[in-house]
Computed example of a mutant assay.
Amino acid sequence: MDVSELRQRLEHEPKSLSLTLPVPLTAAVWRKVEMAQLWQQQASHHHLICRADPLYPPLLQQIADPPSILFIKGHPETLLRPSVAIVGSRAASHGGLSLAFQFAAELDSIGLAVVSGMAAGIDGAAHKGALSHSGQTVAVLGTGIEQIYPKRHRQLYEDIQQHGAVISEFWPEVTAFAGNFPKRNRIISGLALGTLVVEARRRSGSLISARTAMEQGREVFAIPGAVLSGDHQGCHDLIKNGAKLVESLADIIEELSPLLQSHLQALPSYVPLQTEHNSQLPFKTLLASVGYETTPLDVVVEQSGITLDLVLEQLLELELQGWVAAVPGGYVRLKRN
């Protein structure tokens, strides 16, 4: 973006950039231009794009209040790929984290980018799932592009830039502020063809992304869960209100294929993911005794009819293969057969 274009954008749409201008506009504009120029020149992977830029995401152009300028670290062309947003609880269960990782990896494997907010929990797991394949993932920050939140995601922040993009509409120095995170959610849903909610309680902030997706006319997907724990109440409410219940990647592809054919380039040939036949499952009897919610060890022993020593040996093998995880109170199953 050149200086004159950036200045024009700042003059005409200061509110969309979350600016407070206590001094005359022209002086503030020039300072902001200089700051943006300096930031862009600091590294070759720093980019600024405005709505007139050919790299500006076409789906984001269609929402009611698209950001005027995007600060980007990484590969801006990632924003042009057809994508699905994955959101959910920050305090997610082991099962929820595993599902977010799995769905993101599967979406990436068929050519769809994964969009999320780099928050703790489901967001982070989704980004990591995409990074486990080609890494086509976009992190939309609720802070300035130079502010890492949460701090423990520093490595994730760096890894995403290698193959995908970290983006923000806020100026680089803007720190974490609660009111900015709901605002960024409209970008998460606005970039994507649809939004998948993996795990969410009724008051979860991830439901804001689902609501903005509905308002933007995008698809909303939700994964159901146990009715007793409360971790999936928000997902169940979404399904009651018209979101598509998702059990596998095929449920998402079924809805998105017409959109891809009508509005975007064709989806890469979809090859159903291979699943292991029951006869090839490791320790079938024991695996069938471990639920997707926490299953106490004594229940596993009782239901499987296997001795405790053998149960512990087989559970360790299943854990190493990624089929189950040890959690407080017992074990949970992570993968379906």
Rank of each mutant, 00 (worst) to 15 (best):
A92C: 15
A91C: 13
A92V: 09
G117N: 08
A105T: 04
G96T: 05
I145G: 10
A119D: 09
G117H: 08
S134N: 14
I110Q: 12
A126F: 10
R90V: 14
S89K: 15
A125H: 13
V115M: 12
I122A: 02
A113H: 08
G96H: 10
G124N: 04
A92L: 10
V115W: 07
A120P: 00
S116G: 05
L79K: 03
S109K: 14
A119K: 04
L131K: 08
L107R: 14
A119F: 05
L112R: 14
L131W: 02
A92Q: 10
L79G: 11
S132T: 02
A130D: 02
G111C: 07
Q102N: 08
A125E: 05
R81I: 14
L80P: 11
R81Y: 12
F103H: 04
L131N: 06
D123A: 06
S98M: 00
A126I: 11
I110A: 14
S116L: 04
L99W: 13
M118L: 15
G142V: 11
I145W: 09
F101W: 13
R81H: 14
V140I: 02
A120M: 09
T143E: 00
D108K: 05
G129W: 00
G117R: 06
I86A: 00
S93W: 07
G95K: 04
V115D: 04
V140K: 08
V87K: 03
A139N: 07
A139F: 01
G142P: 00
G129S: 04
M118D: 00
L131A: 03
I86F: 02
M118Q: 13
G95R: 09
A126S: 11
A104S: 13
L80E: 11
G121T: 13
A105W: 01
I122Y: 12
S134H: 15
G124P: 02
A91V: 00
V87Y: 02
L141C: 09
I122R: 12
A126K: 15
G111Q: 06
G111I: 15
G144V: 10
V87L: 03
G111V: 15
A130C: 04
V115E: 04
V84Q: 14
I145K: 07
A92T: 06
G111L: 07
G144K: 08
G144I: 08
G96Q: 11
V84H: 13
L97G: 10
A85D: 02
M118S: 08
S116F: 11
S98T: 08
S134K: 10
G135R: 04
D108R: 05
A139V: 03
A100Q: 07
I122H: 07
S134M: 01
L131S: 02
I110D: 05
F103T: 02
R90Y: 04
G117C: 08
V138Y: 05
A104C: 03
F103N: 02
A120G: 11
G129A: 05
A113R: 13
D108I: 00
